[in-house]
Structure formats: structure tokens, C-alpha cells
Design a protein around this nucleic acid. Structure first.
Lengths: 344, 344
DNA sequence: ATGAAAGCGCTAACAC
DNA sequence: GTGTTAGCGCTTTCAT
């Protein structure tokens, strides 16, 4: 069962040469029907499977995909990985997952590690800390297949799969405005990230459309995306101490940050939505159970993972070098709940 | 950078044979200091890395570990995977993750898939549906390295890493009893699973110790571990319709089931803990934010993943066949919160 | 229609 | 101390 047979075994058993067996197994037309049937049946009987390692060595493809994410234990990424696995598995690829924990140094090391493992391509969601994209640029220029998902590199022209962050942010902000909030803070991830920039734009434009002046004091960046608790607490304290500019609502723009924000508000004994309303990006599937139930912007993480993987495999298996790249943008889902209602 | 050099390239460049280069790279003592230095420096300069695929083919080790879990997008498993990755990465192994979605058929297919990929060993957490363990038995008897974590196979004598489920359940149940609840229901996963049996035992013994009669009507099994919502709703409806036996508290014994249970209670407009108190196993890191904050039994998932991986690699790398196996049991952490307080 | 042999990158037994 | 060679499992020219 686990000690698999080789074509040599089959050849010997059947009195054939290994090449004949190989060809028969691969359905080559130049093998006699008799022989082919014989080989196929015997192979089936002993349940032989080609050794993927030998195949890899032969055709210089590892049939593995490298994945770079911030954290596996994050609702968004675990769902995306689920999508990645589902496609990869069916296409005969396996997936090597690495975590950056939002560190640029680890990210660089992970990419190196994946390359040394001879992955056929890379699925990357940038760490919040990264600024130097030369590693990716170099690889991409050399024709190495890379697909970015979620957190994409702005100035590398390759395939990308992202949520419509601008729209998601716009809608969430406008929901808060339409509910009657006027001083809306924006708590977001590192400004390095394109997703942060897009979400900030959506936020700004929603304000502008509704004739609310943009106030830079109300925008706070947490460069560790909610992983460092003090950073979040600091930001929120600054916000609530703004005196007459004190926000009546917060729009949070990152998964982990959203839950960290809630935890911090709770710690500071600020009631949501009475003292301050909250709406935020998160893919948590228990947001409904929160106190209060949380208004969320949800990303189609599973599909994003699937599409990114399909794109990557397509590039990998392309006969000729790929030079045309596209960006798939998927809509987010806004789910209004009590955390963003107006309490009189 | 990604187009790596081979020892042949080095040999040619330096006017040496491939074997000399190979030996130099591996620090063989029978190579002249001069030559060794020369090779090492050159290899460093061109940043050459041994091709892991060729190594795998050579010594019949893939340096990959197969993982079988129910779902990646589950707080417990994503944390465990995090632990698995952290060890595997440092030990030069990579990890292939497969998901059963609690299906026995998928589980069997996944194991086959992993074997055909020539993984060096298996890290398995059984699906709730599985009953036939012959596949694992066969492999284990053949000497194939398998370590079970969390959901272990009762009658296979191999390494296992589990939480102290009995104690965790006992403590949670006793917490409810000490708080003043007397009719405590138990909502649990498939009875197939050893973890379910252990948790049931802990529950029963806590009742017994406190002179509360065991009532079988109060125990409900959800065979899909909370993945199938109707199953949970059905069970809860039956519980609350028990008339005078209607429970005043529920102890839930599975991660997904705990959150499903809360969602169902909410849907049925039952207030926690007023109408019914709740305590449950879960590794969610946002249980504190729930309405009400949830009393949980938390498992050291990260460490469980780490220990299981260390054990597995040890077996894989053992010179002689391993015949002595151990079971590591880690304590759970009980975190009392408002969902289990008594409201008058 | 089938077989012999080379080669993918690496290691190790065997020369010298 | 260093080179030659075979072999891990497979595919693929090149013969026949």
C-alpha cells in the first residue's frame, strides 16, 4: 500500500521493458492493444502509482505551489487557503504554506525557502511590513509565475486577485453616514499595503460624496494589523481623547484589527454602538454572536483563493511565456448588524 | 535566483568532478582543505542549493509530512497547523495539508493521495464520520510513521498527542454545578470519536461526584461536529422541549459545535445564561467578545501540533524501527466568563 | 510494436 | 585526496 511498485517491477513481472510499460501506462498509441491492456490491468491490480518525485526530477517541475500569508490562524487566510487547496488538489499540485507573521525578513526567507524547494509558482499575500519588492520583481522579470492575492504589489504587473476594497470601504462608510454618524474614524493597517490605500480612498470618497470634511486626525494606522495589542489600544485612546473631534463611529479596515478594536473598546469600557459605533472588515463567521452583533465587510476569501490558484496553474502550464496579466476583482459583502445602529 | 545551479555546474567551473564537489559541500573529511574552501566559497557566491527533489529520489525520502484534518478554517485546526508548520519548517520538512470535511470517504482518499505523494509520515486527526480504521492499522503495522493528534484512533498503538479531554470536561461540568446548575445537558460530537467518549466520561463523573443523577436524555450527539446546522438546531429543540427535565445549562464538547450552539440559541431567542447557561470547548480567540462572553475550555492547539510533529519526525528519522509509543496529554485551560453565571 | 540507453541532480561504493 | 560510475524512477530519443 505505501511501498509502491515501480515500472521496473511491472516490466519484470510481465517480461517487458520499462519503456514499454511506461508508454502503456501513458496510453501511447504506439503500443499494441494487447500489451497495453495487460500492463494496465496489472498496474491496476497491484495499485501502482507513478513516483511523483521521479517525475519531478525528470521534467523539472515539482508540482507544488508556494503560499505566503501572514498567518494561517486568521479567518481570512484560513478560508483562502481552503480555496487554494481545493483547486490545487484537483489539479495534482500540492501546496506549501509559509507564514510571515507580518515580518518582512521572514517573508524574504520564506520566498527563498520555497524557491529552494523548487515550487512551480508562488501565491503571495504581502506582509504588512514589507516595502522592498525587488525580490518579487526579479522573479517576475525572470518569468517565474507569481499571483498575488488580497495584498498585492502595486507596481508588479502580474496576475492579481483582490476584493473590491475601495467599494467595500465606501459602502461601509456610507452605511455609517446614512445611519447618522458624522465623525467617523478609520482604523487601518499599514499604509504600505495597497489594500489599506484602497480602503482609505473608499472611506474618503464616501465622506466627500456626503459632504463630510476629511479629518486626518481620525485616521490611524496600526502597522502590525492588529497583532500587536498595544498599538491598537494606543490608537483608540488617541481617538477618544480628541475632545470635540472625538469620533462617534469607527470603520476598521482589517480582519484582525477589527476584533482587536472590539476587544480594546471593551477593555476601555466603551459601549458599542452607544459610545461609539463600529463596522469593519472581517471574515469571522461568528461576528453575529458578538456583543453587539458586528456589522462587517466580508471578503469572498474562498473564491479569491480558488481563482488565484487557477490563474497560477494556468501560467505554470502555459506553453509560451505569459506576458498578459489581469487583475480579478471580487465584490465584498456588507452585512449590517447592530454594532452600527444609532442609539438615542 | 530561482534557476539554481547544480553540482555539475560547479564542477565544471572549478575543473573538479561532481563527486568532489558533492563531498566538499557535505563537509566530507576526505577533501583537501584548499579544495573544500574553493568549492564552498564558489557555491556561496552563486548561491547554489542542493536540489531537494534529486535528494528525495536518491534516498527515498520526500521530506514532506502529510496532514489530515477536518477543516483548515477552524480555529482549533488552524492553530494546530501553525504549530505543525513551525516545527516542520525548522526541521527541513514541508507539510501537505488535506481536509476531510468530516467525511470518511474523503479521509481515505486523502490518505491515499498523501501516500502516492510519498510523504514520510502522517499527522492525523480523524474525521467524525470514520469508523473503519483498517487503513491506518495496515500502515502502522507495516512500520509507516503515523502520529495522531486530538482525535486519535483508540486501538492503534502509535504516538498520540491529545488534550486532557476528560479533565477539561470534568472541570467545565463542575464549574456549572458549582455555579448552581443541576440539569446540565451535554452536546457533543460523534460518539465514534475517542475525544467525545472521554469528554462524556468527564461530564458523567463530575455529575456523579456531585450527586447528580445522569440523565441520558440530556446528552445529544451531533455527528457532523456542528458543520450541519439543522442537526444542532434539532438537538437543542429536543432539549428545551423536555418539560420538567429541561436543562438549565449546556456543556458543549466541540469547537464548531460550541459556536453553532450559540447561534442556534440566539435564533431560538433563548437568552444565555438567563434561559440556559453555556460552557464549551472552543479555541476561538474572540470568545470574550461574544454576547455574553463565553466560558470556554481551550486546548493548547499550537503546542499539540508542535509536539505531534516532533514525535513524527523522530520516528521518521529513527535508525531502527520504533516499537515503543507514547501518548502525550496536555492540560486544557478553563476560562470562566459570563455565559455560565447564574442569573436570578 | 518494442527494447536499449541516456539523462534529470545527487550520493556513495569503488577505484587509484 | 580525487575521479569514475552506478543507480534512485521515470520518460524519451534512437534503434530495430
Amino acid at each position: 500500500m505505501f511501498q509502491s511498485y515501480t515500472i521496473k517491477d511491472i516490466a519484470k513481472a510481465l517480461g517487458l521493458s520499462t519503456s514499454t510499460v511506461s508508454r502503456a501506462l501513458n496510453g501511447s498509441y504506439e503500443i499494441g492493444t494487447e500489451t497495453k491492456k495487460l500492463v494496465l490491468e496489472y498496474a491496476e491490480k497491484i495499485n501502482s502509482r507513478p513516483n511523483p518525485i521521479a517525475l519531478s526530477l525528470k521534467d523539472q517541475k515539482s508540482h507544488s505551489l508556494g503560499v505566503v500569508v501572514a498567518e494561517v490562524a486568521n479567518t481570512y487566510f484560513s478560508q483562502a487557503i481552503n480555496g487554494i487547496e481545493s483547486i490545487a488538489y484537483n489539479r495534482g499540485y500540492h501546496v506549501i504554506i509559509t507564514q510571515t507573521h507580518e515580518s518582512a525578513a521572514r517573508e524574504a526567507a520564506n520566498v527563498q525557502h520555497l524557491l529552494s524547494r523548487h515550487v512551480d509558482g508562488l501565491l503571495v499575500s504581502l506582509s504588512s511590513e514589507i516595502t522592498d519588492l525587488s525580490q518579487y520583481k526579479y522573479l517576475h522579470e525572470k518569468g517565474f509565475p507569481i499571483v498575488f492575492f488580497d495584498r498585492a504589489a502595486p507596481d508588479i504587473d502580474t496576475h492579481k486577485v483582490i476584493a473590491n476594497n475601495y467599494k467595500g470601504a465606501f459602502e461601509a462608510t456610507e452605511l455609517l453616514i446614512n445611519t447618522g454618524f458624522t465623525k467617523i474614524a478609520h482604523l487601518t493597517n499599514s499604509a504600505n499595503l495597497l489594500i489599506s490605500q484602497d480602503r482609505l480612498e473608499g472611506y474618503k470618497d464616501a465622506l466627500e460624496k456626503n459632504n463630510i470634511a476629511y479629518n486626518a486626525q481620525l485616521v490611524k494606522h496600526c502597522n502590525h494589523g492588529g497583532m500587536v495589542h498595544d498599538e491598537v489600544e494606543e490608537a483608540i485612546k488617541e481617538l477618544v481623547n480628541l475632545g470635540e473631534d472625538r469620533p462617534d463611529a469607527i470603520f476598521v479596515a482589517s480582519d484582525r484589527l477589527t476584533t482587536s478594536c472590539l476587544a480594546t473598546l471593551k477593555k476601555l469600557k466603551l459601549k458599542v454602538p452607544k459610545d461609539i459605533a463600529v463596522a469593519g472588515f472581517t471574515n469571522s463567521d461568528v461576528a453575529e454572536l458578538f456583543d453587539p452583533p458586528l456589522t462587517v465587510v466580508r471578503q469572498p476569501a474562498f473564491q479569491i483563493g480558488q481563482i488565484a490558484t487557477e490563474m497560477l496553474i494556468k501560467v505554470i502550464e502555459s506553453k509560451r511565456p505569459v506576458t498578459e496579466f489581469s487583475t480579478e476583482t471580487l465584490d465584498t459583502i456588507l452585512i449590517p448588524r447592530e454594532s452600527s445602529i444609532k442609539v438615542k
